[in-house]
Design a protein around this nucleic acid. Structure first.
Lengths: 152, 152
DNA sequence: GCTTGACCTAAAGCGGACTTGAGGTTGCAT
DNA sequence: ATGCAACCTCAAGTCCGCTTTAGGTCAAGC
């Protein structure tokens, strides 16, 4: 008796609401739909209606973007979520963990970079490969490409 | 007696050599010059000649870019290095330390993000603000913008 | 002195991620 | 019933960080 009528009403939300809730511009949301990152149903008058769960989908996109993932990569991640039905808690857990892995990787890379840089601050060089001072400005160039591809 | 003649010869390097040493494309180097990130002197025949120290300047640009800095920001950082004269060890130390600060900041931000995400993995949500399950899908929307501006 | 590869400029193009603009339709409140 | 905000499409524009193209010039070895 409490079920459908009270809830079903708000289950589909128009694009403006999604924009407000996510902080995204309406145009950006349309763009994501065009790219296939999210999907909407249409009203009789051709207006988009989103599931509430799409708001979370968009939150995920925002977080992943901050980590520097491109939309194509994000799309790949999201592919494991069901288009159409509302994702379950487990769906989100799985994908969040994958994101966590991504973050961990980045932290490690930055940490390594920092350590290398620390070594170099000591001598004021930036070769990060062989200290340029030690190399008297040029020994590295004889021994190969030098400060090329500095990190990795 | 050992000084100028043996050294002065190679002091100015053409763009191709800079490209090889840094791994950058010649066109990219020209672009950076156009943007004012590096400066070159010209030969009688209008060809660029770079100081060896410009190779380090470019290495710095590469590192900073990897950290996600835009060229405008990098330009600001580099502004404290002398255009024209070869930077001293101290110049580089100062600027490297600033880069180190940047890296530290990023690691901190990522760590915070990871912690927030960890909290959320527990319930499978991504609001990172108030758990959506706790909120029964909608209490957040009554209480304001919801999962907006998720991190920061 | 001539060939050849490295160099030059200026302008246009590109991919990513959107935004803006023009011109039109929908749908909810009154 | 009507007004008006919110919605729609499609095309073009924008910013960033370069690359590509076209049409030359320079310089070093033979």
């Amino acid at each position: 008796m409490v079920g459908k009528s009270a809830k079903g009403r708000n289950d589909l939300v128009p694009i403006g609401v999604v924009a407000q809730r996510t902080g995204l511009a309406v145009s950006a949301i349309r763009y994501y739909e065009e790219r296939g990152l999210i999907a909407a149903v249409r009203t009789g008058g051709n207006q988009r209606r989103f599931l509430r769960s799409d708001i979370r989908r968009l939150s995920f996109i925002l977080i992943a973007q901050r980590l520097g993932l491109g939309l194509a990569e994000i799309e790949r991640e999201l592919a494991s979520l069901p288009h159409g039905r509302t994702p379950t808690v487990l769906d989100w857990q799985r994908i969040s963990r994958s994101l966590r892995g991504e973050i961990d990787g980045r932290i490690q890379l930055l940490t390594r970079t920092r350590n290398k840089l620390d070594e170099c601050i000591g001598c004021g060089c930036l070769s990060l490969d062989r200290c340029a001072l030690y190399n008297k400005e040029d020994r590295a160039s004889a021994a190969g490409p030098g400060p090329r591809f500095v990190l990795d």
